[in-house]
Design a binder for these strands. Sequence first.
RNA 1: GACUCUGUAGCUCAGCUGGUAGAGCAAUUGACUCUUAAUCAAUGGGUCGAGGGUUCGAUUCCCUCCGGGGUCACCA
Length: 573
Amino acid sequence: MSNMELSEQELIRRASLQKLRDLGINPYPANEFKNNVTANQILTTFNSEIPNLQEVVFAGRLMSQRIMGKASFGELQDETGRIQIYVTRDEICPGEDKTLYNEVFKKLFDIGDIIGVKGYVFITQMGETTIHVKELVLLSKSIRPLPVVKEKEGKTFDAFTDPEQRYRQRYLDLIVNPHVKEVFLKRTKMINQMREMFNERGYIEVETPILQPIPGGAAARPFMTHHNALNIQLYLRVANELYLKRLIVGGFEGVYEFSKDFRNEGMDRTHNPEFTVMEIYVAYKDYNWMMDFTEEMIERVALALNGKTSIPVGDKEIDFKRPFKRITMFEAIREYTGFDISEMDENALRDVCQKIGVEFDNTMGKGKLIDEIFGEKCEGHYIQPTFITDYPVEMSPLCKKHRSNPELTERFELIVNGKELCNAYSELNDPIDQLDRFQEQLRLSEKGDNEAMFIDMDFVRALEYGMPPTSGMGIGIDRLTMLMTNSVSIQDVLLFPQMKPEKRAEEDPAEKYLELGIPAEWVEVLMKMGYKKVSQLKDVKPGKLFNDLCGFNKKNQLGLLNPVANDVSNWLN
RNA sequence: GACUCUGUAGCUCAGCUGGUAGAGCAAUUGACUCUUAAUCAAUGGGUCGAGGGUUCGAUUCCCUCCGGGGUCACCA
């Protein structure tokens, strides 16, 4: 990058970097820095009466500096928080040479630098726990200014809030917005809790293919890719369900996977093209058992994260205390529309849609119509955790038929805050029924439903060898995190949410300018002046360009030797 | 994809009906040995997202494009 593209503050920091090197200070030292304490440890364990922590070694990022002549305060931030430091000239520079304080600490250190200190902990007159610094060392120089966020009495000033920058440059967001880190710590804690619970029960964590020849297990548009050596089309998985069930066939009796899935669909507050799902399959269980299991898991997570089962979400309070409400889909529809659809055929369902104002078209079968009614009229009403059970068979091609009604399946979804959180089945293990259902999906697909499933014949073959009765459950980890952290957007619970790539203005490579006989140093100047492409030079008058170049050189004090007017007109020919 | 709001200094934002831009913090220089949004004084910093149009003149009005937010559609 040429210096002309840098801001004033960046130039100053690069100059500081050079001055540090000139003073014999390596701005990026290689050696280990043996810190022995964190900010949080100091803040929570220091006792001024003993006193303890009299030989601390601490490393962190300099977040503020308050210089008062021969003494200074600053704040260092590590992973656990911020701690104030107190630096005096004569203590870090005991001899005659005061350079380390006057030059290095006061002038060459900037907000954002990573530094290490040695000293002892004390409490200032203002009551702030502080490290009294006796030694100071630069660990990494920051040459790009950080947004400076200030805070007093809980009020934040100049908060760094631009969503675009926060998501694109998450590292910045994490540095200056401490609450952001909390969300991701909770996310990890949540996953750890779940993993712990599954492991306690002896279930096995497994990994299954992300690149799949048949994107099965869910009806969604997949991302496609190509394998060169095999010369085949591959898909990024939309689900891992069929692979986990193959493992149940293979004799594992409890398997789970935290799975990144990919769906080539729209993006919004609750959808990211890649997202995380936890799926678990347990042999010899049914969906009733799985409801109990799911309740236990979610209650446990809520307690671990927040110490209580009840959590604020938006302007509501959601309580994850067991047991959750259970209601069948038909009852739910009756509750919110007044219609009993349990005996209705496709045409009767269309009438109902008409009457209650639910849009539909002719590609929709019975299952899709019912789902549409539920989605439009019921789902949003269930704020507290509610299991919706017994979905129509058409909507659930991988789910076992209901033990008491072949029109229905043994399926439940957990709805929280009006949105689906979990999906679970008594898994279909009848291979002949499974193939029929796949073929029915194919017919739907031919009818125009582009979300119907692909047929995975190897999966059917696996079932033919025999799969024990099994219950499986999938839960959206991103959405669970949103609930548990009261986040409104999926982007707030993903460290690096998908964004459109940043685009830089188009510009010609330097060679194109050099070909015209323009010296390299003037190419940079032309670019900076706005001539990003050689074609832009076409209609420029040589005299004007000559004047502009000289003027730019002078104004910006580039110190270049001005070109000769004749040369400039030669460039333009 | 549609509608709508939005893009001005490193950050947060002003900028009326068109006359090439302001503030606070940050930065630079100086003063200050217990400050904490430190304080005080001075100084510098901007192709006002990109391109085109109207105009004597555009950050401002119009069009196109590129980012981003929100709402809706899509997401069994």
